[in-house]
Nucleic acid binder design. Structure first.
Lengths: 327, 327
DNA sequence: TTGTAGGCGTTATCAT
DNA sequence: ATGATAACGCCTACAA
């Protein structure tokens, strides 16, 4: 079955393809009479536009590419929701691709985005593709880096959190509530901004309070953190404060704490968490301080920024930090 | 800055565009000498293919469209991961669009997919677009319905769970562990297969055991279910069994149960849950029976099926049910 | 207001 | 093995 094209419609309606195109796109001038004829022809033939052809001609794509490290992450999903909900140009569509925490895969995706003429890219990088990204920027691709900074000469738009500040405030609050304790700092992802910035903030607060601490790497991973907990207990059998710099790690710690029901770890191992976890209110005896994050809000900002860029109102490179709150 | 095209490369390499195309696509016959010339020209000019033009010519798109009701749902994300991980044709790319539980939006998305010539559609429907979907099927669009059935003449591929069976087994197990109790059946989404099939299975088991029950509608929603719980307590102050037919509702119930710490609801309101929740092991005193779901596995099956369809090895309409397990 | 026709960048047929 | 060239379906000067 051959595809119905603008030509078929034109023939049926006894007008030219140009007129059909005008009707379809709602631009230019067409008499009501002709418009009617075209519209009925469209209905009769069941015509719909071929976006590929249209895009080729217009040198556009109406596609926004989004790169995330993984699909199974609530933070990222909230972020995407924020983008989606506030993106008003309805003709656009989102590619979403997962780099699977792999920098080669990330590069592949970006390359594919370039080949498909995407109008904009929203990138949550896994790191390591800086030079390639720079090349893309040079060709005027509209890229916004989100949550994780891309360290690049000349800069790149960035929207994310103030990790340093939030980790600092979290730690300060935590220390004021559990004085005279040993402290474990549970971090990870040091090669990414979300990793080292949080460490920086926490350490700053620890040093200000002259608080000694042990640093452990939980790799922003629930399982690893859960398995680390027994080591913490061995090292500090009388208890210690745990500062978890990511909610996934907090999840692992909480699971470990509740593994042995009879032992009451709640009071002995108070936790500070950068980020909330599910059922946080139920674990309020364990988690006595936490950073609330606003991924949805970040998504909204990303969306606004991208729309500005698409409209050409974005000459300067911009960095925007969304403020977290401490509970 | 003008785009570098195959023509520019041809000129630079002193060959025809046809030869360049052959090199780029690795088909046809080219001498090593010419291949080298073309490849260096490509590097020098920083050429990359224009997928839009290529697609127009080839009448393809290399795009798989996925429609989900919302991004913020772990089940869907696991499903997508399963699809992604097992989809081997690397030249393909996924559009993922959220219908936001809105049937008009779903239709819009499907229409856009059609206009973009997507090669296949994976649809988690919200219901109500049956006739439009049928129209798409008539034009030979490759659509696989997932998790939620699309009731359509002539049938449509479906991959999902055996909701009736799983709900039946869950209920049977639950009743055998809490005999002589009152029971609340917490359901929802009755207009979708995931809603009414689970009710059907649960009711079957209840009737077999001659167990009376009260049906409440929690709309597969955590908040609503959390708010329903006090009503349950009022109605059954001495306790009752709660069969929650969806994990989001279970989440709400668990939250409500743990709201008042002093009241020990755990033993008085045992829960059966269709689907797991986070920290399930911590709540094992509350949730005494549950259905384990395999969204990732469903994704894998969807991916396999779609690849078969793309390869043309899929004449018959297929229904495949992935077996759940009961814990 | 309408129609003609060229071209977007690529692929693929058909000569050579 | 290679090149010339006609599409793919649409948009848009430009002319009428």
């Amino acid at each position: 079955m051959k595809r119905v094209t603008i030509k078929d419609v034109a023939k049926r309606a006894n007008v030219s393809t140009a007129t059909v195109s005008r009707v379809v796109n709602g631009i230019g001038t067409v008499t009501d009479d002709n418009r009617d004829k075209v519209q009925t022809a469209i209905k009769e033939l069941n015509y719909f536009v071929n976006t590929t052809a249209s895009n080729l001609k217009k040198n556009s794509s109406n596609v926004i590419g989004i790169v995330i490290p993984t699909f199974t992450n609530e933070y990222f999903m909230e972020l995407i929701k924020g983008i989606e909900d506030s993106f008003v140009y309805s003709e656009y569509v989102f590619y979403i691709a997962s780099s699977k925490d792999d920098l080669d895969k990330e590069k592949e995706i970006l390359q594919k985005f370039r080949e498909s003429n995407v109008e904009g890219v929203i990138l949550l990088t896994i790191g390591g593709n800086e030079s390639f990204i720079q090349e893309l920027l040079k060709m005027n691709m509209k890229i916004i880096s989100v949550e994780r900074r891309v360290e690049i000469d000349g800069g790149i738009d960035f929207i994310g959190e103030n990790n340093v500040e939030a980790a600092y405030e979290l730690t300060k609050k935590f220390l004021s509530e559990i004085p005279y304790r040993d402290v474990v700092l549970l971090g990870g992802y040091e090669e990414l901004s979300i990793g080292h910035e949080r460490i920086e903030g926490a350490v700053k607060a620890l040093q200000e309070k002259k608080q000694e601490y042990t640093y452990l790497n939980g790799h922003f991973n629930a399982k690893i953190s859960e398995e680390i907990f027994p080591d913490i207990v061995t090292r500090y059998p009388n208890g210690c404060g745990i500062i978890s710099l990511n909610n996934t790690m907090t999840e692992g710690v909480i699971r470990a704490i509740h593994r042995d029901e009879e032992k009451d770890y709640s009071s002995k191992y108070p936790v500070a968490s950068y980020g909330k976890i599910k059922f946080q209110s139920i674990f309020k005896n364990n988690i006595i301080a936490s950073v609330r994050q606003y991924p949805y809000q970040i998504g909204v900002e990303v969306s606004n920024r991208l729309q500005n860029k698409i409209d050409g109102n974005a000459s300067e490179t911009v960095t925007k930090l969304i403020r977290n709150t401490i509970d």
